[in-house]
Design a binder for these strands. Sequence first.
RNA 1: GCUGGUGUGGCUCAGAGGUAGAGCAGCGCACUCGUAAUGCGCAGGCCGUGGGUUCGAUUCCCACCACCAGCUCCA
Length: 645
Amino acid sequence: MIKVALKDGSIKEFEKGITVSEAVKEISAALAREAVAAEVNGKMVDLGYRLNDDCELKVLTFDDKEGKSVFWHTTSHIMAQAVKRLFPGTKLAIGPAIENGFYYDFDVQTPFNADDLTKIEEEIQKIIKEDLPVERFVLSRDEALKIEQENGEIYKAELISELPDDAEISFYRQGEFTDLCAGPHLPNTGRVKAVKLLNLAGAYWRGNEKNKMLQRIYGVSFPKRSMLDEHLKQLEEAKKRDHNKIGRELELFMTSEPVGQGLPLLMPKGAKVIQILQRFVEDEEERRGYVITKTPYMAKSDLYKISGHWQHYKDGMFIIGSEEKDEEVLALRPMTCPFQFMIYNSKLRSYRDLPIRMAETSTLFRNEASGEMHGLIRVRQFTISEGHLIVTPEQLEEEFMGVLDLINYIMDTLGIKEDISYRFSKWDPNNKEKYIDNPEAWEDTQAKMKTILDKVGIPYQEADGEAAFYGPKLDIQFKNVHGKEDTIITVQIDFNSPECFDMTYIDKNNEKKRPYVIHRTSIGCYERTLAMLIEKYAGAFPTWLAPVQVKVLPISENQIAYAKQIADKLFKLGVRVEVDERNEKIGYKIREAQLAKIPYMLVIGEREMQNGQLAVRSRKEGDLGAMDTDGFINKLITEISTRAR
RNA sequence: GCUGGUGUGGCUCAGAGGUAGAGCAGCGCACUCGUAAUGCGCAGGCCGUGGGUUCGAUUCCCACCACCAGCUCCA
């Protein structure tokens, strides 16, 4: 007999060699029905795994994160099986579970189209009905390689040959289908009750654009039909928050074909929101000891040759003129750093001058590839709260923390602190094209950054190959409605520019020293931030950010003059207010103001005119009843000045 | 840039190898109205752009442009 410790702390005895599945049946019949896999001593295993020693056992169901992952991973195998049946000769690449479902990458003769997806989905249903048992087996490296090579599975063979020497090479078989896989998996295909293939996309083998483009199918699956329906409903709901949809509906921005791709036009309301954000950020930066610069939108290629942009970032720049034609070559700026460095270098600096904190609300131009643009999130021209701190090595830590404090304050005010994650973006030593070739400096700077991050206690995830070409970054990430992460704010330590630009300061001992540079944004790119805020608030901005804060709604034309008086009073107090003078019913005016997500509606009828009150309606809470005019104004002004959410 | 999808009045969407329709929005008139859509009428489209096939194309084919999802890249 063996002793098995369960999640609730109890210990049960089983016969040695019992399978997990049998053991679970003894624990609870209900749990046995829901079990998808298990963790034995913290290691994920199949339900068919045999328990031979005393151990800790945790049964995984779809409710567990790991359980979902197993469920979706098996579904990806089922999908691969369906594809193999319908398109013999398809080569399999990889098919993992992801955060919200799964995908599988296939190398097929002709790319899939939308109809193929339907066919594949039908074939998946058949495989589920067949309720095939999923069996695990282990092969030696040579056997495994031989099989995959014989079957023409070149991608699988590549994966096998790269597995570490001591790796156990396992396969999973269901019916006629076998796939190299670490597992674990569901015990049979019938466990999957509801599947939906969501979309089709190209994806490069191993994420490298030099490799072949494979066909990726994304899908999701559930143990119950109703769960799938609920999930699809949620996806639809999420799309209703899409900034690209409601940002246009609310007349915050638009695009225009003749203007061009990735060049959104901010309309009066969108521009207003950005103006408010910009004033807020600039004031806060000034309070924190930043000086401002205003530097050119373009420069000769000479500048970018010094900074390294010409060598490492040329594809991302709009270049005017050509060297071949012996013309003057200029480029629109993709970053502001070189310009501010020139200002730093304009005179000899003393250690007493440092730190120097330079900020600029800076418009940048980046020649993004055509498929990369997206609403306000990814554009070719954008304005960013860019800044550079020139600091002594001794000041690096404190100044970095000061930047974090500023960012924290801004995120707190915007109400997005709970919605972001931190990414520590490091270089990729193998990518010589992208990164400055100075391994010691990279390692040293990354270690410095890590020390600071750990000291502050920021919960970050490390990411290789995400650094800027000149140094590591702390990226603050926000997920859009489609679950895709984008960087909203970034802080970077640059060891390279001080060298390139020969930036120096004179220290106490009258010696020339190299400063460090911290590149940072405090709110990031305004366009992207606007997109994020639209999605965060579904277009219903907090009052201080709302492009129109109050709409005055006279009930009939008899109240228009009075309504205008009220509006004028508010306007003079700096409130963004409009009067709906149209000859419409009050219900209609309210509906429109509500759909425009205006925080306060003031209904003005005969009664209000008589007694000098306001019938206040809040976007959030509905009819608030009659209020004293001054009382309302005080409440409103407080709400705006405290930037309440 | 790559893969797949989409492109019809301001918006949401029908339609079909014979030359375009609805709702909403807009405009006009009437109603002067109390907390999420008053009624009637009018106007609005070279069916993304350019080629090709055809007696005839918005519909079929090709190229380009833009938009959407993903890959790569990135604030």
